[in-house]
Design a protein around this nucleic acid. Sequence first.
DNA 1: CTTCTCACA
DNA 2: TGTGAGAA
Length: 128
Amino acid sequence: MIVADGALHGIQEVATTLGLTHRTLRFYEDRGLVAPQRVGSTRVYTKRDVARLQLIQRGKRLGFSIREIKDFLDLYDADPEHIEQARLLLAGVEKRAADLHKQRDALDETITELEQLQREVRAWIEGH
DNA sequence: CTTCTCACA
DNA sequence: TGTGAGAA
């Protein structure tokens, strides 16, 4: 049977085209983020798998953990209307943005302190 | 080329 | 969060 799901791809090919290594794909699979079909024991990635991997890459780019990304993807599968999924995404995105703002504030404080010290040391040097 | 497992940063 | 290596 195996319906009409176009081209299938090997792990090396998928990894290369996504700028990943086959080790990373296997790691994601271990973590339950992807579940490629098997032909015998060989993994075969569909275009849906590749789409999932691209979502994973986006999630990582935005600073989400493998676990968070998995929870999101799982919900996407479980909920055809994608309502709960959207709520989870929103919550996660808000949290992430809040964390980053917090980090930025901390960095600003540190930079300000460094600049102050910088002025103090310069003044001390001038005075000698 | 692919698989798996174990160790390791 | 991945990587390297060894063996099949």
